[in-house]
Design a protein around this nucleic acid. Structure first.
Length: 757
DNA sequence: AAATGTGGAATTTTT
DNA sequence: TTCCACATTT
């Protein structure tokens, strides 16, 4: 076996890649070459003739991962990746539903709603049915529906324990009715419909089962119940399912991810003659030893694990650097200082990441970086296809493609303003409801309940009709361009003084249509046909018959980049969640404080702290060479200063691999250092200082009675905490302490024997 | 129909 | 603090 494909694989990777035909669960630790194994496995199957490209289905969660798989695969083998089913769960389900829209009981040109659209639909529904949004918050219903669907449950299958739940189920049913009438599906619906399609149509199911001899799943720990059921349906007796995942990196339980899927895999995908193979990839190619030691020790505190230990053949490397800053401002200043000196040493800024638990923390960091003129890029936020002007342009296109889309209708009927007031739309909504039709049909039928067809409404109908006629024969980008202008959007934003960005985005939408066509072209070859249940011919990768519908699906399924990548290298700011899968030379994990990380909300959740710990594990394992873990004694949060105890996760990193860059007492908690001295001390600490910088700065002894807000204390009964308030003096003096384990308490200094901690 | 004011809430996020 | 939804004003 001297295939170059297999060169440089370690024994476990090699075993995984060349596994004989049967299902396998690959426990792939952080940085263990997971993507490489996955793509090499596919290449291997193809190269050895064990599978044809059409027999392979590979599924990921993100478009980015799917794209990367395609790129790496084409680099490895000369195969045409075009006919292959490689994509996201949603993308593949969309493809399947387009091909079998009749059996799925969907209109041919069904439209996909993103979460914004979905919320808008729920709001409309609340208005129409007079549902009380105080008692039933719209967001909550949105979550309720998504959760139900992710478990594969229709309204009649949801068990409602109490009255509230019963009402929510009713609302769920109403919602479904609206979606069906308007011909729109939400994200979860793509999965559920596809699942039901396979469940109900045996012929189809058998067709796909026979076709896909190999199913490969990326980030298996992130699959939800429905995705798992979908995989089970799709996998026939002779299908080998190759599931790659890491239970220690399961950080999406809050959106339905079900790690138990990994535990059940062996039972559900094994056959008596071909039990599931279990392979662990534990050799890490990313990080130096001390970083891995920190990660391993940390994650050992979780009880529910499959069990894994990362190791490296490389160096121990630097110690993990820890810092207790007096406040969030100093924490940010420290990061600026270190980044500057690293940059001065020649480290690319893009190799430095600053991670935080919640987005709110980015502001101050941005402020500090901005003032220091350090280029940075923040991940997260508004994506291209989510911007208002882009969504409006898309709504016109949706109306052109699919006029019954009430959401699209309402979005642009009077935008830009054209004299269709709230009153007109109300009447129209009433008329549509009584006639049981879409707004579009009601408008065509003559408008409002009063029977007075509004002239502006008629003009709008004509506008859409004329757009449809004008764009009919046009290539997609030209059609988009036409709609941008004919809709009046361009004229509208030209009038606005801050409209230039929006105009740019509208122009960018034309470009997006161009590149969509270009990429779709590459992805398409001859229509896939099979004797019994042929897949419909595809015009594009999105699987729709016409390019416009495909583009609209693309816009919904791939929201696009957060912001255009800047030319110059920049530091990377993001949440820990967003950092999953990435790696950097230097990583700062910031805000390591009880209440923030682990987040206080997680403490009430089942398995909450363990998930937070996995999150911390993800954060730590992003670092290749240098890891900083920082916390601040005081932090401005929601407009108020808060005093937090240092995170328990800091204590869980073995002292032997940590160098404290700030004075620190023996136990958890903050330092006892005067902010005034801070700058001086910090100045003496350079990031290059040897690991032995450690905790050796002696702290001036606490003077028995001189307690300060922000100080860490210990109480014999209540444990450790931080003083957050004080009042009175002398014998009456009391302090308020936020104890880590026992909460906030007022203590009289005369009686409570507090000691500095 | 745009501009201004008020109250409340405030993880994590892909599709 | 900041963002949002909603209500009220202009």
């Amino acid at each position: 076996m001297t295939s170059p494909l297999l060169a440089n694989l370690n024994p476990e990777q090699l075993a995984a890649v060349t596994l004989p035909h049967r299902s396998a669960l690959i426990l792939a630790g952080a940085g263990s070459g997971k993507t490489r194994v996955l793509t090499t496995r596919i290449a291997w199957l193809l190269a050895t003739g064990q599978a044809s490209p059409l027999a392979i289905l590979a599924v990921t969660f993100t478009n980015k991962a799917a794209k990367e798989m395609l790129v790496r695969l084409s680099a490895m083998t000369p195969v045409h990746t075009r006919g292959m089913w490689i994509g996201t769960f949603h993308g593949l389900c969309n493809r399947m539903l387009r091909a079998h829209y009749r059996d799925a009981e969907l209109p041919q040109l069904f439209q996909i709603m993103d979460t914004q659209d979905q919320l808008a639909l729920i709001k409309r529904m609340y208005k129409e049915h007079g549902i009380d949004d105080e008692r039933f918050p719209q967001r909550q219903l949105q979550y309720f529906i998504a959760s139900a669907k992710e478990e594969g449950l229709r309204p009649n299958q949801v068990e409602a324990g109490d009255d509230i739940a019963r009402r929510q189920v009713e609302h769920y049913a109403l919602y479904e009715g609206m979606c069906q009438r308007e011909g729109v599906v939400d994200f979860a619906e793509l999965l559920l419909r596809s699942y039901e399609l396979l469940a109900r149509h045996e012929g189809l199911r058998e067709h796909y089962r026979r076709r896909f001899s190999h199913i490969l799943v990326d980030e298996f720990q992130d699959t939800n119940i429905l995705q798992y059921k979908w995989l089970r349906l799709l996998a026939g007796d002779d299908t080998a399912v190759f599931a790659v995942g890491d239970d220690d990196q399961s950080i999406y339980a809050f959106r339905g991810a079900n790690v138990a899927n990994m535990q059940h895999f062996e039972r559900d995908f094994g056959r008596p003659d071909r039990p599931v193979a279990l392979i662990k990839l534990e050799q890490n190619y990313r990080s130096h030893g001390n970083i891995l030691d920190a990660a391993n020790a940390l994650i050992k505190n979780n009880r529910t694990r499959l069990g894994k230990n990362l190791w490296t053949s490389g160096d121990k490397g630097d110690l993990v650097r820890a810092l207790a800053a007096p406040s969030d401002v100093e924490e940010a200043a420290f990061i600026v200082d270190v980044a500057k000196s690293l940059a001065a040493e020649g480290l690319a800024l893009s190799e430095i990441a600053v991670l935080y638990r919640s987005n709110a923390q980015s502001r101050l960091l941005e402020h500090a970086l901005f003032n220091a003129a350090l280029p940075y890029r923040v991940y997260g936020g508004m994506r291209f296809f989510e911007r208002a002007e882009v969504k409006s342009a898309l709504a016109y296109l949706r109306l052109v493609a699919h006029p019954d889309d009430d959401g699209a209708f309402l979005r642009v009927a009077n935008f830009p303003p054209r004299g269709i007031g709230a009153r007109t739309l109300e009447n129209l909504t009433d008329a549509a409801r009584t006639q049981g039709t879409s707004l579009w049909q009601a408008a065509c039928a003559g408008g409002g309940a009063g029977g007075k067809p509004s002239a502006s409404l008629r003009a709008f109908i004509e506008l859409i009709e004329s757009m449809r006629a004008a764009t009919a024969g046009l290539p997609l980008p030209e059609a988009v361009d036409h709609v941008n202008a004919a809709s009046g959007l361009i004229a509208h934003y030209k009038k606005e003084k801050d409209g230039q960005d929006r105009l740019d985005n509208l122009a960018e939408l034309v470009t997006a249509a161009e590149s969509f066509l270009r990429e779709a072209d590459l992805a398409v070859d001859a229509p896939i046909t099979t004797p019994d249940a042929g897949d419909a011919p595809r015009a594009t990768d999105e699987g729709a018959a016409d390019p416009l519908t495909a583009f609209l699906a693309h816009a919904a399924l791939e929201a696009g980049e957060t912001q255009a990548a800047e030319g110059r290298p920049a530091m990377q700011l993001m949440t820990v969640h967003a950092a999953k899968g990435l790696e950097f030379h230097t990583v700062f994990v910031t805000g390591l404080e009880e209440g923030l990380f682990p987040h206080e909300q997680s403490l009430n959740e089942f398995d909450g702290v363990e998930e937070e710990r996995r999150l911390m594990y993800v954060a730590v394992t992003r670092a290749k060479r240098r890891l900083y873990v920082t916390h601040a004694q005081s932090r401005m949060l929601h407009g108020q200063v808060r005093y937090n105890v240092a995170s328990r996760f800091l204590d869980e990193i073995p002292a032997s691999v940590v160098a404290w860059l700030s004075p620190r007492r023996t136990r958890r908690g903050a330092i006892d250092v005067d902010p005034a001295e801070w700058g001086e001390r910090l100045g003496a600490i350079t990031p290059q200082s040897s690991p032995s910088v450690a905790a050796r700065v002696p702290v001036s002894g606490s003077r028995g009675t001189a307690w300060r807000i922000g100080q860490s204390v210990r109480h014999a009964k209540f444990g450790v905490g931080i003083i957050i308030d004080a009042e009175g003096r002398g014998d009456d003096a009391r302090v308020q302490v936020n104890f880590r384990d026992t909460g906030v308490k007022w203590l009289a200094l005369e009686y409570a024997k507090l000691e500095a901690a």
